[in-house]
Design a protein around this nucleic acid. Structure first.
Length: 265
DNA sequence: AGAAGAATAT
DNA sequence: GATATTCTTC
């Protein structure tokens, strides 16, 4: 039973740094049905590749109703399928929170930063609540243990130090959102097809050497011109390095991720 | 009124 | 256990 854990972890370490993992985040969202169908927690080796979106939960498009129009209501009163928080999606979540700072990291803002089409504030709120509990748990006694086995999802994404501050507020979080939401609304923005959209997020490198694993997760692909982050803690300068997350948004595809691959607007 | 957060429910 | 939904408070 536990062997599996060791296994996937070991495997994880070796296979993580592959470019595949670093490239596209275009498929951050998977429909629950799909997730279940493909049995997600199988192997992340190919998680970089967009999942085969062959069977979207397309409710219905034909929908011929004999006299009743209540059936075809694209309204918002429809029940969305359960959201599955994949490691990719969670990563995006953590990034957003990290760059907003704990203070500004509220569901709405996080949601906007993530700019995932279909993602609701409630989705984020729920996840945030759980994530906070995880952080708290980690502060209590998780530090030594290094992590339980019940938080695989959260463990899949490194936790910025700012999240784990002492139980007291040192100097609050003086974080300046170094970048603006892709779109205030939930519309897709037109992106130059031939242009890479590198959303550069700045964050401090965590000093917790959980092994090369963590580093692998920092999508440090290239550090050509690292734009000095806007935020600059003039005061205490921790001995942390400034790593830059580079979120590769799909080039040429929809800039905003979408929960629902099939859309007919 | 609307959003955040905690408490519950599925 | 993971998400959703409800409830309370701001």
């Amino acid at each position: 039973m536990r062997e599996e854990d060791s296994n996937w972890f070991a495997k994880w370490e070796e296979e993580l740094p592959s470019p595949e993992e670093l490239i596209p985040l275009s498929q951050a969202l998977i429909t629950p049905d799909l997730a279940i169908a493909f049995d997600l927690h199988r192997d992340n080796s190919n998680s970089g590749q967009p999942l085969p979106q062959t069977t979207p939960p397309q409710p219905n498009s034909s929908t011929e109703f004999a006299g009743d129009s209540t059936g075809d209501e694209p309204a918002r009163t429809l029940k969305r399928p359960r959201l599955v928080w994949t490691p990719q999606l969670h990563k995006r979540f953590v990034d957003a929170v990290a760059h907003l700072g704990i203070k500004n990291a509220v569901p709405k803002t996080i949601m906007q930063l993530m700019s995932v089409d279909g993602l609701t504030r409630e989705n984020v709120a729920s996840h945030l609540q759980k994530y906070r509990l995880y952080l708290k748990r980690m502060q209590s006694g998780g530090g030594g243990g290094g992590g339980g086995d019940s938080d695989h999802l959260f463990a899949s994404s490194p936790v910025p130090p700012h999240f784990l501050r002492q139980t007291s507020r040192q100097s609050s979080d003086l974080f300046i959102p170094s970048f603006v939401p892709i779109s205030t609304q939930q519309q897709h923005i037109a992106a130059p097809p031939s242009q890479f959209l590198h959303r550069q997020m700045s964050a401090v490198n965590f000093t917790s050497p959980t092994k090369a694993t963590d580093q692998a997760m920092f999508l440090v692909r290239q550090q050509s011109q690292v734009q000095q982050p806007v935020f600059r803690p003039s005061s205490l300068h921790l001995h942390n390095q400034v790593a830059n997350y580079t979120q590769d948004l799909e080039s040429g595809a929809k800039t905003g991720l979408t929960l629902f691959p099939t859309r007919d607007d």
